[in-house]
């Protein structure tokens, strides 16, 4: 049996937890297309899930090499979206953590922080464009105001994500 679930996440760690929770309820995650998660019914608790934001895109040589390396250690790439990969490992093989030292964890979170900075800037440009600039060049219309007002809270949410990641990185900084 198959089912599709619509859900939006901005915290990848919550997403990982949710995928693992679904698996515990007997739904194995198989595919992601923005917003939509496909699940197949499975025996409960077979796999554990992790997500990684890779350095390169899905077609890059290093990505292929890395995924093959993961395969050798019993980790399968279930689905991918841009540079995000959804990975799983059999639960019987023990705990599943991609990173075991603080340096590699910092590197991964820095990449995610930069992604959110980029997304926040795009939203910010959208807000400024719609709320302020639209009225300068031609007559301001309500569509612009509406778009701006919709984008504003999204921009705030994204910016808060950036702040959260920066705080996390500061806490992780080595003492020496």
């Amino acid at each position: 049996m198959q089912k599709k679930v619509f859900k939006l996440f901005y915290d990848f760690e919550k997403e990982e937890q949710w995928l693992s929770q679904m698996e515990k309820e007997g739904w194995a995650f198989t595919k992601y297309v923005p917003g939509f998660y496909t699940f197949e019914s499975c025996d409960k608790g077979q796999y554990r899930y992790r997500m990684e934001f890779l350095k390169h895109g899905p077609k890059h040589e290093e990505t292929k090499d890395y995924l093959q390396f993961l395969e050798e250690t019993g980790i399968t790439c279930v689905s991918s979206f841009a540079s995000w990969v959804y990975l799983r490992k059999a639960a019987e093989e023990g705990p599943f953590n991609l990173f075991s030292d603080i340096d590699s964890r910092i590197q991964h979170n820095k990449r995610i922080k930069n992604l959110w900075i980029f997304l926040t800037l795009i939203e910010f440009v959208g807000v400024v464009n719609n709320l302020f600039l639209a009225g300068v060049t031609d007559e301001r219309n309500w569509t612009n105001v509406l778009c701006g007002l919709i984008l504003l809270p999204i921009c705030v949410v994204f910016a808060r994500m950036v702040i959260r990641l920066i705080k996390k990185l500061i806490n992780w900084k080595p003492i020496v």
Binding site: E52, Y66, F69, L70, P95, L98, F99, S100, S104, H108
Partner: peptide
Amino acid sequence: MQNVSVLSGGRVELGAGTLYGA
């Protein structure tokens, strides 16, 4: 990776991502 776990008495579970970088 298993060897690291055995050597450290289960204290260190080497992550595949960390190992690849190393």
